[in-house]
Simulated scan of single mutants.
Amino acid sequence: MTAFILTAGLLAAGVALTPALLHRVYRAPRIREQGTPAALALPYRSLRIPTVNGKTLFAWLVSPAEPAEPLPAVIVLHGWGGNAEQMLPFAAPLHREGYAVLLIDARNHGRSDTDGFSSLPRFAEDLEHGLDWLARQPGIDPRRLALLGHSVGAGAVLLLASRRRDLAAVISIAAFAHPEQLMRRQFRGNRIPWTLGWLVMRWVERTIQARFDDIAPCRSIRHVTCPVLLVHGETDSRVPPEDAECIYANRRDASTELLILPDTDHDSIDAIETHADALLAFLGKTCRGVLPVPPQGKDATRFSDRPLPRRV
């Protein structure tokens, strides 16, 4: 009887501790910025942008103080455990080409506020608050706004774009096709039985309050109406290029393009210096037109107010 009680107690403790353990395992590492855009001789100002739950996001706006005319702008979002500084290689060529660039830290990243857990939908929430803030700024053309994201940030730009109709373009770099596929690879690589993996997936879905099928980039791409450039490294050791091909195969129409970069791994952000021309050419095509002014005030809707895309 004593052994039975002890075993039952250990099982109960394990069940009680599992959520806390998983929160710790899946907590995003925080790396704070050490430098600034000044290191690249870029004009900038540091910002705090309000987001949900009364939290604020740290950001840099790279732009002339008083541009001669409203500028097209690109909002840049890092991946899991990243920050705005890691995405600075994108800012220099964009600035030279005449774009304003807003680099933001998602919650729990860089110098942004802490707020529970991180997830792809929360990345998209923060991205939308940055987008709406930027659209209201003087010197920014709200009809020529584009999104650029890396890794989880790439999934977030596709998810947000699937729910907006006021974007000029989206660049998604090194996105995974589906969260379940990503987790299956992680569990397989660590030789963890998929029975346990399935339970972890259900816990993650419950925690983030979203089904993987509803937020998967290979699903959200079907609902994006603006032009999309999917970029992926040919030698990506974390997310294979087949994921980009899967997303591309589910594209809505011919306005989505796929660019596979040779000799480029998952975190090879510096490769932008080699391939910047392709990204700038895409933005040049897509941000040249003028979209209707996006709704503001009572006519605007928030990311969290919109239903998830219908499953297809």
Rank of each mutant, 00 (worst) to 15 (best):
A92S: 14
A92F: 11
P93I: 09
P93S: 09
L94H: 03
L94T: 06
L94I: 13
L94A: 10
L94W: 07
H95D: 09
R96C: 15
R96I: 11
R96K: 15
R96Q: 15
E97Y: 14
G98N: 05
Y99W: 08
Y99H: 14
A100R: 04
A100K: 08
A100C: 13
A100S: 15
A100M: 10
A100F: 15
V101L: 02
V101S: 02
V101G: 01
V101W: 03
L102Y: 14
L103D: 02
L103W: 05
I104K: 07
I104H: 03
D105N: 15
D105M: 09
D105H: 14
A106D: 13
A106C: 15
A106R: 06
R107E: 04
R107W: 03
N108G: 12
N108F: 06
N108S: 12
H109W: 09
H109T: 05
G110Q: 13
R111M: 09
R111T: 03
R111Y: 14
S112W: 11
S112N: 10
S112K: 12
D113S: 14
T114M: 10
T114C: 10
D115T: 06
G116S: 10
G116T: 06
G116I: 02
F117P: 09
F117I: 10
F117M: 13
F117C: 11
S118R: 05
S119Y: 08
S119H: 11
S119V: 05
S119K: 09
S119F: 05
L120K: 05
P121N: 11
P121Y: 08
R122K: 14
R122L: 08
R122E: 11
R122I: 00
F123L: 11
F123C: 09
A124I: 03
A124M: 02
A124C: 12
D126V: 08
L127H: 02
L127N: 05
L127A: 07
E128V: 07
E128P: 05
E128K: 05
E128M: 04
E128S: 07
H129C: 12
G130Q: 07
G130Y: 06
L131H: 02
L131F: 09
D132Q: 13
D132R: 13
W133Y: 14
W133L: 06
W133R: 07
W133C: 11
L134N: 04
L134C: 04
L134I: 03
A135L: 07
A135M: 08
R136C: 00
R136K: 01
P138M: 00
P138F: 00
P138R: 08
I140W: 02
I140D: 04
I140C: 02
I140V: 00
I140T: 03
D141P: 04
D141A: 03
D141Y: 08
P142T: 01
P142R: 02
P142E: 02
P142M: 00
P142Q: 05
R143H: 01
R143N: 04
R143P: 04
R143Y: 00
R144M: 00
R144A: 01
R144C: 01
L145C: 04
